[in-house]
Design a protein around this nucleic acid. Structure first.
Lengths: 133, 133
DNA sequence: AACGCATTGTTATATTATAACATTATTATT
DNA sequence: AATAATAATGTTATAATATAACAATGCGTT
C-alpha cells in the first residue's frame, strides 16, 4: 500500500515557503511571478502546488478574495474548519483560532438532515487600525 | 438628498427573475446565455445587475463556487449575514435560516479588537440523498 | 523489473470578472 | 421647467483566475 504523502515535493515547498513569508493572502499569479526565479514557469505548476497544500491544510484559500494564505493554526492539520476576519478597508486577513467557535460550528446541525464535515467562515468589518482612521 | 433605490431596473429585474426561477446557484455566464433573448448581450450587463442585487441582498454569491443564488430568507434585507450548506456530491446549495446561528455569529468577538459587520459561512458535506447512495 | 501513483513540464484554452468610455434614464433640487 | 447629481445602460476590449490534455519523470511497493 502506498502511504499518504508525508513530505512536500519541490514545487510544493517553493510555493509554501513563499506564501508563509508573505504573512498575508497572495494571489496565485503573484505567487507565480515571484517564484519564477525558482523555476516555476506556468500557472498550473503554482495551482497544482496550491491545490495540494490546501488539501493537506498548509494553506487556506480566502474564497471571497481568490487569495491564498498560510495556515497559522498549528492544530489545523486538515483544512476542514476555517474562519477568517477580513478588513474591508486594508484587506488584512487574520485566521481566527477560537475553540468555542470551532466547536460550535463543528457541532452545528440544522433541520436539513445534513451532517457537515467542513466549513469556511469569513467575517468582514474594519480592523482596529482602520476603525480609528 | 437622494433616496436609496426602492425599485429594480430593467436588467436587474431580468437577472433576478432568472435566478429566482432556478432554485439553485447559477454561474454568471450561464445567466448571460439564458437572458440573451431578453436583450442582455454582454457579461458586464449581467455582472452589474448581479453586483447590485447582491448589494441589496436579493441575491447571494456562493463564494466557493463562483455562483449566484436568490435569497430565500425574507428577513435578509441586506446581504450581511449569510450561511449556506453545500453538498459536495450533487452541489445542492441551501440557505441556512437559523436564528441561533445568526445571533451567535453576529455577536461573535475575538481578541483582535475587530467588530464584524458581515459574515459569510459555507458548510460542506453530503446532503441526505447523497449520503444514502 | 514491473507496477501504481504522485509529480512535473508544457502548450493551449476555458472561465470569471473588470476597465474605459460614451450615452441615457431617473430623481432631487432650484 | 431647468439643472444637477446619481444610477443605469450599451459596447468593445482586456484583465485575472483557473483548468484541460498529453507526455514524461520520479519514487516507493510488489
Amino acid at each position: 500500500m502506498v502511504q499518504k504523502q508525508e513530505y512536500l515535493s519541490k514545487n510544493q515547498k517553493i510555493v509554501l515557503d513563499h506564501v508563509e513569508k508573505a504573512n498575508q493572502p497572495l494571489k496565485a499569479y503573484s505567487i507565480l511571478y515571484n517564484v519564477q526565479k525558482k523555476g516555476l514557469k506556468a500557472p498550473l505548476q503554482v495551482y497544482r502546488a496550491l491545490d495540494k497544500l490546501v488539501e493537506i491544510g498548509k494553506i487556506h484559500k480566502i474564497e471571497s478574495r481568490n487569495a491564498f494564505v498560510a495556515c497559522k493554526n498549528s492544530n489545523c492539520i486538515v483544512s476542514n474548519a476555517t474562519a477568517f476576519s477580513i478588513c474591508e478597508s486594508c484587506e488584512k486577513v487574520t485566521e481566527i483560532n477560537n475553540s468555542k467557535l470551532s466547536k460550535y460550528l463543528s457541532n452545528f446541525e440544522d433541520n436539513s438532515g445534513m451532517k457537515y464535515s467542513k466549513y469556511n467562515l469569513e467575517f468582514f468589518g474594519l480592523c482596529k487600525k482602520c476603525k480609528n482612521k
